[in-house]
Design a binder for these strands. Structure first.
Lengths: 138, 138
DNA sequence: ATATATTTGCATCGTAGTTGCAATTTATTT
DNA sequence: AAATAAATTGCAACTACGATGCAAATATAT
């Protein structure tokens, strides 16, 4: 878990400091993998309304605190973005989805490759999802 | 549009030939981009029940006719997989999502790069989604 | 043509996404 | 420190997709 004061951090992002936002941020700091809205609801002991969670995730995405991860199962997943700035970690990292435990893990040490597109296409962002078996399930 | 007889094709896949399956396959053959369930419903003029569409997509995925494309917006998208076997097309291709027109396009001529994972992780499949502006919207 | 197997549509339920609004909470001002 | 202004929250409500059971309809096999 990262040593980050949620109040100081949220203040630095220029948003109102509320219990819901502090709790949701704490959950992200505690868990190292990507989270769904339902998981956050569970990890906060159903103390926060799901609409508030949804709106908070929206806010955090717009502020660049977290980012949405594409998935096949029609479930929005989010993960912390900018706080993990240890050496060797890439902001533009890739995501690993484990077939066995179902967790989505940010592989901060693996950089997203740059891709050459056909003429006429302009790239703004590249998302890579690798599926397979994770470290804990091998 | 690819010149493929839907009856012959479905028979070769070893599935029952029904109107719904022929219609849905035709829609995929007509459009070159990835489709959502709602788009298929629209393109078939609401002639097929959405549950049937859902189940057909499920069947087509299991038979390897189409494949699901990961997305951020919690909407399942599917695209044809094996029929496009022109030279220079990769089965393991990548997907482009246009910010402007919202279409998801299979870039068959761009191969998915192979990625080196940290020790303990085993890769089975890699999905790449590039977001930006497409050829038609530039 | 009949029998068997599969598929379809309808009903239905659960869950996520989304919006409006009044009550509450946070921040600011005096 | 109280009053005011601004933003957030929870609730209700609605839409849409995912998913399953079942009887009716359709496709295949005999």
């Amino acid at each position: 878990m990262l040593e980050i004061d949620t109040v100081v951090f949220l203040k630095s992002m220029g948003v109102y400091i509320t219990d819901a936002r502090r709790m949701i941020l704490s959950v992200f700091l505690e868990k190292e993998n990507a989270l769904t809205q339902a998981e956050i609801l569970r990890f906060t002991n159903e103390a926060i309304d799901r609409v508030t969670i949804w709106r908070t995730l929206d806010l955090f995405v717009s502020k660049g605190i977290i980012h949405a991860i594409p998935s096949m199962d029609s479930l929005a997943r989010y993960a912390l973005l900018q706080t993990k700035n240890k050496a060797g970690c890439f902001n533009n990292h890739l995501h690993f989805m484990c077939d066995n435990c179902g967790k989505t893990i940010c592989l901060d040490t693996v950089q997203v490759p740059s891709i050459t597109l056909p003429a006429g296409f302009m790239s703004k962002q590249t998302e890579v999802i690798v599926k397979g078996t994770c470290k804990n399930c091998k």
